[in-house]
Structures are given as structure tokens and as C-alpha cells.
Design a protein around this nucleic acid. Sequence first.
DNA 1: CATCCTTTGAAGTAA
DNA 2: TTACTTCAAAGGATG
Length: 557
Amino acid sequence: MPQLNGGGGDDLGANDEMISFKDEGEQEEKISENVSAERDLDDLKSSLVNESENNSSSSDSEQAERRPQPRPDLDSYEKTRDYFSEALRRQQDGGFFKSPHYPGYPFLMIPDLTNPYLSNGALSPSARTYLQMKWPLLDVPGAAGLKDPRSPTPGHLSNKVPVVQHAHHVHPLTPLITYSNEHFSPGTPPSHLSPEILDPKTGIPRTPHPSELSPYYPLSPGAVGQIPHPLGWLVPQQGQHMYSIPPGGFLDLSAFCHPTGIPHPAIVSPAIKQEPNSHDHMSPSMHSRKSPGPAKKEEDKKPHIKKPLNAFMLYMKEMRAKVVAECTLKESAAINQILGRRWHSLSREEQAKYYELARKERQLHSQLYPGWSARDNYGKRKKRKRDNKPDSTPEDFSIRNKNQCVQYLPSEKMCDSPASSHGSMLDSPATPSAALASPAAPAATHSEQAQPLSLTTKPEGRLHHHFLTGKPSGSASSSSSSSSSSSSSSHPSISIPIGTSGSHSSHSAPIFSRPIPFSSLHHSMLSPPSPFHQAALHSHHALFQSQPLSLVTKSSD
DNA sequence: CATCCTTTGAAGTAA
DNA sequence: TTACTTCAAAGGATG
């Protein structure tokens, strides 16, 4: 596996995270990434707050609360990481807990309870049961592993419930685990669970090496509780916990507590949103919860099978909690913007992971639901009215969007992008010029400002394909302006001719909306990401930088 | 209560 | 083939 961190890898991983929001002072980035990040977040928050303040000036309190505690999590990021590393090491040495590095990945999902793709009123899409296991795909200790070092502490564990299902906050990657295509065989009876490879010596389940592990381990609900879980905890997303603590569970909570002692913000909210219905086929105990309703009929008929999550969605699920924790933001729209930026700032390796996961999910999905087509879901969701009316002129775009002219994210101080100091990333940050160039910036009239941000990101939106996917997502071509804002999103598309070479049309090359400074092109993946790629890319690992994506771009002159 | 908002990516439809 | 739309998650905001 790609050893991303040769020794200092950890740091890189951490940096990645921290830098994401860097906006100004990239020069000092090295010096104070934390600070920078914090500041960024603060700005972000402030801006958001301001928004709300405008509406109602009540956020003082909010600000107040934020200030005092400048993201301890970040501060302790390193520590935490180390902490975990050490813990891991200990475990590997024979420690009782074999907790994986990734708090989130190591779980097995019990298929019975969970079809992530089934959702529908009656079927809770998300209720899932997990068992801990090693994440097959992410066995890249490097960046990935450190992804969430701050793993939240299980706020409240319950041994009463061997299987804690949680609704929305499922680990994003779990679905993959569940449906791992490679080993998935539709007909396989879920009876043998054998993920638990007992350590011959200790008798304690050890986490099998990915290679020896089938990602798909159907477990019967009953069995779940019996399997001694090494860890028994999971990184709750957004405050949820799903664990199954063995009766005798020696859960050394302290080990998973936030080193700082400061509870992970996410943990604060105990309110677990449980999907009311969750499963059609669930464990007996759960069954009692749900009374077969009328809905059932429909389900039987045609359960709503959700689309498999794409890479970004997977990423979102994973990171959302973190972002939420870091910021006081609550609005998903805002969070998503942040996530979008972070996404862009991810290194190739990291993105590749998600693409890979997404790919597998799709495969799995197709295996599970051979006949399913995305089309099936069309129209199920109320159609957004956002569609621009065809006739709407480009300027209209401002209209549609909204009502809320909320600028969710503050412009990251522009895109002065750090000049991409390192340009390494996939998206290499746009060169300032590019940003500037963006024509998009419609002269912002007030209304248009409504989405300043949007400009930001979206511009590329359809413009770029991901280097990894290589698949054209849309129109990259038209460079120009397209007039209409095409995308749904409302912003005029920016057509920034990509600088450098952009050209690569040839092999569907990824067209970065942003100039691609370096060779990225050259690895521009002709093919989907693979670990190998990652290795190749390794050299480029860079700190992610902020993304210029954004924001706003000032209007060009 | 339903939909919007917002993000990226995949897949669908229409031309 | 291109261009555009829809949906996937999420949860506060809005009508």
C-alpha cells in the first residue's frame, strides 16, 4: 500500500485537513496552518453569522461561543493523531483493542438491516448495523488513516443495544463495505460471518488484513452482539454512535476521548435521528418497532432504490461531521460549500480513494439491482423548480436562486489563491488569473451577489471532469460562456479557458477549470484512480490549498 | 409538511 | 456527441 507517510506522513495528512480553508496568508501557511485554518473558519462562520445576523441579530452569543474556543480539535489534531497511532501500535503489538486507524471505516454492515439504497418511507435507508472491520479500500494508512484522528469519543455507549442503528449518520464508506462487489454474491446467505478472524493466540478477533478479508460479511443481527468487537465504537458521525459493546466490553474510552478532554462537538448532540422505519427486514427487536404499514405494499412493489453515492457524496458523508464540528455552521448548504472546497483541495490520492469507493459502490449497486436505472428515480423527488426556464436569460439566473441571497461562504478572501503555492493538487488552484478572469462574475448586482459563491465553484462545475473519472461530466467545452447558465446552479458558467494547456481535450482529459499548473495533466489520469496512481502521484502530494475556487472571483474588472 | 439551498459526480434525456 | 437535467446526502431555512 502506498505508504504515504514515510515517517512524516502523518503530518501531511494533517496538513491536508488543515489547509483546506486557507485563504490568506498562504505564505505563512507553513507557519500557522492551524491559525490560518481557524481564521478561515472563523471568517466563514462570521460571514455566515452575519448573514443571519442581518436577519436577526442574535448571533452574538454564537460568536461568543465560538471565539473562546478556537477549534481545539485542530489544535490537538496532531496530538490526537499521535495518540491514535500509538494506540494502534499498541494494539498491534497485541493490545486488546485492535482498533483500526480509521475510526470510521472499520465496520461491517449488516446487510439485513441495511440496504443503503433502499429508502423509502418504510425502508430506512440508513439504518445500519456495523461491525468493525478493516476498511478494505482504505488501507492506506497515510492520509486516509489520519483522516479523522479526532475521532470523537463515544459519548454515550450503550450496551443494551448491541446494534445501534443510526439513521443519517452512517459512515459514508460503509456502504461500500457492505456491498463490496468483489465478494458480493447475491445469493450468498448471510449466515457465515467470519470476518472475525480470531487471533490464534489471544482468541481475540483481530482485524484481518484487507487481503484476507472479504469486504462483505453478512452478519445476522443476532450474531452481531456476539462478536466481540475489538473496538466497539465507531466514529459517530455527527454525534451518533453505533457500537456494539461486548458484554464485557473493555472499552477504554479514555483511549478514544479527545485528548484535549474537550468533547468532540459532534458528540454533543445526542439526538439521534432515527429513521423511523428502518428496515423491512430487521432484527426481531427492531421489528417490533415497526409496524407493518400500508407503506409496505408499495415497498414491496417498488422500493425506492437510491442512487449509489458518488465520490463526492461519500466524501461529504464522511467529512460533514467534521466540518460541522469545526464550524458552528448548521446549514447544510453552507457545509456543503465548505465540503466542496475541501474536496477540491484534497490530494489526488485522497480523491482517488473516494472515486474508487464510489466506483465500487456503483458496481455493487449494479449487482444488487441489476435492473435498476437512475431513471427509476426520476421524478420521485419533487422536481426542483430551479430549472431555469429555458427562456430565462442569463441574467435570470440571479433570480432563481434565490431567495436567499445568502452567501453562505465568505469569499475566501479571494482567490488570490495562494498562488497555488504548490500547485500540486488536482485542482490545482486556479491561478489567480483564472479566477480573475472569470467572466462569470457578473457584475454583481445586488441580486447577483446572491451567489457570489456560486460563482465560485460552479464555474467549473460542469467544466471539469475530474481527472480521475475522466468522464466528461458535461460540457466542458464550450468555453465560453455559455450563455445560459447552464447548470442548474445558476451561475453563469464561467468559461475560463484554462490556462495552461488546457487543452487536453484529447483524452477527456480532465479539464480543470482551473489551470493546471503542473504536470498534473500528465498524470491526468487517463484512467480512473487506482492505488497505483496514487503512488505515482505521490510525489505531488501537496498540501492542499485553498481553493480558489472560488470565490468570487472578482469580477473581472 | 414540502421544498429549497448547496456541493460534486453519475447517469439520464433531449437535441 | 453535446448540452442539460435529475438525483444522491444533509439539515436549517423558508413558504
